[in-house]
Design a protein around this nucleic acid. Structure first.
Length: 237
DNA sequence: AAGATCGACAACCGCGACATC
DNA sequence: CGATGTCGCGGTTGTCGATCT
């Protein structure tokens, strides 16, 4: 169809943004608002592609961006949401005030994903000969299946099957093919279900990261394990 | 002390969805 | 109703500082 490139790359800056560019973009968006990204660089006097401007604003310059480490509570929430939504980072980010999809995606790829992969491989290696090693782990490490959520063939669609937390826990529902994916997830999240999912007792599903506490300096309390601390003013469901 | 490796994160790219003409 | 434009998303890459050898 001869799709035109989003912008002519000739003469445009690429790579890291400078403080000056950040200021120009911030000032422009504050004055004119978000949107019209394609025309924004020209109007603002930036030698950047519109997509690049949008990304910079959304992932870095937005005033409501929360900088700093992902807390343990946030991580638990991410794990739950990923289990529910798959790699739909924007949807996950939408449930984490101040966090961006890019940030969550990076966090997942560098921290949680690796952890799960390591655990998965250790589960594959599970056999009587290494039983002693397995036994040295917390019980939940052996009993909880931490495989990533089922996905479609592209690996991007979430699988939302059980309609309640209890259903998930009981695993009594049919396979993914019988679940009302598109009707529920692709249109709009069922708020009540999501709330139930997030605040239900899913500690077992998240138990994979017992060993995580060492590298999370924001919370060492086991008490946070039972349920997220987000209150209704930060995570309205 | 210097090079190699790793980890974290910002940025880029391609594609699909949706809107508009 | 098809062509085109724009936006947003997810995957991937590049870069840089920290750590290791």
């Amino acid at each position: 169809m001869g799709r035109s490139p989003c912008c002519s790359k000739e003469g445009l800056n690429r790579g890291a943004w400078t403080a000056t560019e950040d200021k120009i973009l911030t000032d422009y968006v504050k004055t004119h608002g978000e949107g019209k990204w394609r025309n924004l660089p020209k109007k603002a006097g930036l030698m950047r592609c519109g997509k690049s401007c949008r990304l910079r604003w959304l992932n870095y310059l937005r005033p409501d961006i929360k900088r700093g480490n992902i807390t343990r509570d946030e991580e638990e929430l991410i794990v739950r949401l990923h289990r529910l939504l798959g790699n739909r980072w924007s949807l996950i980010a939408g449930r984490l005030p101040g966090r961006t999809d890019n940030e969550i995606k990076n966090y997942w790829n560098t921290k949680i994903g690796k952890k799960m992969q390591a655990q998965k491989s250790s589960a594959l290696n599970h056999n009587p000969s290494n039983q002693s090693e397995e036994n040295s782990k917390p019980a939940t490490h052996r009993s909880v299946d931490l495989a990533p959520p089922e996905t479609d063939q592209l690996g991007t669609k979430p699988v939302v099957g059980p309609s309640t937390v209890q259903d998930l826990a009981d695993s009594k529902v049919d396979g993914p093919e019988s679940w009302p994916l598109t009707s529920m997830m692709d249109l709009e999240m069922d708020e009540q279900f999501l709330s139930e999912f997030l605040y239900g007792d899913f500690s077992q599903l998240c138990d994979f990261d017992h060993g995580l506490q060492g590298d999370n300096n924001t919370s060492t309390s086991h008490g946070s394990h039972s349920s997220p601390k987000f209150q209704s003013d930060t995570l309205v469901l």
